[in-house]
């Protein structure tokens, strides 16, 4: 058995009286490509934000690569090796594509290698043909891909993707799936959230279904598809 890269133990996050995440324990192994699915309000994004430290835990602990990071600051977790592509692309609209990449990469590479590193990252994601447009002029899908490239700049071991294919057409979704698989093939662990079941099925090796802040089911996508209760609450089948 491979070592767990991220280990959530009895994690809870309450907002006032609302339990966004309630006693969730989740272990993801190194190199996994793991999907988090569930209806809106299930707690998927909250779990990612608990891993990055954007939200403080109400209860429980988060271990990354065997180390308790529950109290660590966001920036420290990033430097430890956790990175995220946010649900709403966190790109800088008034800057060019390469300036965006520079912001993401300059901390992690010597100045003389910065341009090469930017080239490597945009090639890895497959957006080398876009040139260097102003980000505000780029379509939504391209902004999503750019943010994935930016998320890779810190050389993470764990990449969190919050709805990487949201708002995309079929071709763009397919391209995104290829990006995610290509990144995972380098050995990087990926946890992603998405609502598009075809997309999830195409890329996820394992899936966790969340419902009302708790884990509802876990398994391969085939197993999840056969789970009647999951179908009822989420997949829309009776």
């Amino acid at each position: 058995m491979r070592t767990p890269i991220i280990d959530l133990q009895h994690v809870s996050k309450h907002f006032g009286g609302r339990k966004a995440v309630d006693d969730v324990s989740l272990t993801i192994e190194d190199g996994e490509l793991h999907g988090l699915i569930g209806p809106n309000g299930a707690g998927k994004t909250t779990i990612l934000k608990l891993i990055t430290g954007t939200y403080e835990l109400t209860a429980g602990s988060v271990h990354f690569d065997g180390k308790d990071i529950s109290k660590e600051k966001i920036w420290k977790r990033v430097r430890d090796g956790i990175s995220i592509k946010m649900q709403i692309p966190g790109v800088y609209h008034d800057l060019t594509l390469r300036d965006n990449m520079r912001i993401a990469a300059q901390r992690y590479v010597a100045p003389r290698h910065l341009n090469e590193e930017i080239d490597r990252l945009i090639e890895m994601v497959g957006i080398q043909n876009l040139g260097n447009p102003l980000v505000k002029n780029m379509p939504h899908g391209q902004q999503q891909w750019l943010e994935i490239a930016m998320s890779l700049a810190s050389k993470p071991r764990l990449l969190l993707l919050d709805e990487p294919a949201a708002g995309m057409g079929p071709e763009e979704t397919q391209f995104t799936a290829e990006i995610v698989k290509r990144i995972n093939a380098t050995g990087m662990t990926i946890i992603f959230i998405d609502h598009d079941m075809d997309f999830v099925e195409q890329i996820a090796k394992r899936v966790t279904v969340l419902h009302q802040g708790r884990i509802f089911a876990e398994g391969t996508m085939a197993e999840i598809r056969q789970n009647e209760e999951v179908a009822e609450i989420y997949l829309g089948k009776a």
Binding site: W75, Y92, R102, I103
Partner: peptide
């Protein structure tokens, strides 16, 4: 410079900057 781009990052989106590893 590197500092200039760091400041733009913080000015435009503090949360994202921290998620790029900047000690905002």
């Amino acid at each position: 410079s590197k500092l200039g781009y760091t400041l733009i990052s913080i000015r435009e989106n503090r949360e994202r900057s921290e998620l790029f590893g900047y000690n905002v």
